[in-house]
């Protein structure tokens, strides 16, 4: 018991250390190592955290999907705690993605916002997972909230590609991902910086997920204890 706690703590310290170190390296690389984009100028460097955060947001919602299926299958609140945690972190990252994207679009596109496929589907995604958090907050019973939000976690994620394609068919104006476009090829320094930033942001997500899940588990435990005490006191009275 105690050894597993110690082991868990050691692993957490290792994770946090890795996160801090890789993030510092990524930050240094995006400032000093990556070359400045000839067309877009300095502001292009927003990409080194905008793109990784978008990736992490999708990853977070995918984790919600996996944990939702896991919960409905096993009926173990540990799955649900992780789903809750990941949904909240995903909303945080999606919010930051929308804001940083706007700040890039203003000087480059000369508009804060445009209704193109990727922007629109990210915004709709944000709404779906805000609804997810609201559904949890508004459903008083924990077991029921877990079940309902698991259903939404599944339906919402299945809807993501459908939303994406339908909006794309509707209209689009987003630069195709530079990495897969054959020409003009982004210089290797840019790609390396982006890769390191991706690793850094994924580590940030992992740290958040561990801490947030631990918080939910502790709260569940406290709630259980409180309910048991209240029951005992009621039976004494």
């Amino acid at each position: 018991m105690t050894s597993s706690v110690v082991q868990g703590r050691a692993r957490l310290i290792a994770l946090v250390t890795a996160t801090v170190v890789v993030s510092a390296v990524a930050l240094a690389m995006m400032i000093f190592y990556a070359p400045t984009d000839r067309v877009q100028g300095v502001v292009q460097r927003i990409f080194y955290f905008h793109v990784p955060m978008a990736w992490v947001a999708y990853l977070a919602f995918f984790v919600v999907l996996v944990c939702s299926v896991g919960y409905l299958w096993r009926r173990d609140l540990r799955w649900d705690a992780m789903a809750r945690a990941s949904a909240e972190i995903g909303v945080l990252f999606t919010t930051l993605v929308l804001i940083t994207g706007s700040l890039w679009a203003k000087p480059i596109w000369n508009t804060w916002w445009t209704w193109d496929a990727r922007l629109t589907s990210t915004l709709v995604l944000w709404f779906i997972y805000v609804a997810y958090l609201m559904l949890r907050a508004y459903t008083p019973d924990l077991e029921r909230a877990a079940r309902f939000s698991a259903v939404l976690g599944i339906v919402g994620f299945i809807d993501v590609p459908i939303i994406h394609f339908s909006v794309e068919w509707w209209r689009t104006l987003h630069p195709e991902p530079v990495v897969v476009r054959p020409d003009p090829q982004a210089p290797p320094e840019m790609l390396v910086t982006l890769a390191v930033s991706l690793v850094a942001m994924t580590l940030v997500y992992a740290t958040f997920l561990v801490l947030r899940t631990a918080l939910e588990r502790t709260r569940d435990e406290n709630r259980e204890r409180e309910q048991r005490r209240a029951l005992e006191e009621a039976s004494y009275a």
Partner: peptide, 22 residues
Amino acid sequence: MASHTRAREVMLPILLFPILVP
């Protein structure tokens, strides 16, 4: 689902509209 939540009139459209965008 919404019939079990506290603010059920509010919850249904908030759940429904984003999913129905396509």
